[in-house]
């Protein structure tokens, strides 16, 4: 288990969704957990500072019509780091992971339009000399409610 206290875990589990939509949301939470507004804000700031929580914010539904895609490459293992660096250097790439499979490099491209998306994938294929498969979202089935940690 990572370094969160049991009260922090409880707090995180309670507030992955339904953050109050009212003028003083932290005061509302404070009244529910019997703390002060300042204490609740300090807890959230601390979780963000420690990188346990990336942000307090909105999770937006994926849009099938967007200029974004999940792409994969089968990279010879000896070239993986070099190719990963080329992929990560693209500004439109926001996640880039190694996975255990013949297709061992997976990345998400989020571009401002279809043309930029295409250009990014083409540039990666050209620079690395390796084919890129493009797997755009067709349908999302899951409702993201956060999940207990």
């Amino acid at each position: 288990m990572g370094s969160v206290t049991s009260s922090e875990r409880e707090f995180i589990n309670a507030w992955q969704r339904d953050f109050p939509l009212e003028r003083r949301p932290f005061r509302r939470i404070a009244s529910m957990v019997e703390e002060t507004e300042t204490e609740v804000m300090a807890t959230v700031r601390d979780l963000i500072r420690r990188d346990v929580v990336s942000r307090l914010g909105a999770v937006v539904a994926p849009n099938t019509a967007g200029a974004s895609t999940l792409a994969a490459m089968a990279v010879p293992p000896a070239r993986l780091e070099e190719v990963a660096e080329i992929v990560s250097a693209e500004p439109a790439v926001n996640h880039n992971y190694e996975r255990e499979h013949a297709f061992n490099l997976w990345f998400v491209v989020t571009a401002s339009d279809a043309e930029e998306l295409r250009a990014t994938l083409d540039r990666i294929a050209r620079t690395t000399g390796l084919p890129v498969i493009d797997l755009p979202l067709e349908q999302s089935y899951h409702i993201d409610l956060g999940f207990p940690i």
Partner: peptide
């Protein structure tokens, strides 16, 4: 079927809503 466990993370950044519709984190 296939199971692909993740190993190294080379880059991770929050999706940018401002530029385009986002693709979910893979």
């Amino acid at each position: 079927t296939a199971v692909l466990f993740s190993k190294r993370c080379f880059k991770q950044r929050g999706a940018r809503f401002s530029t385009a519709n986002m693709e979910p984190a893979a």
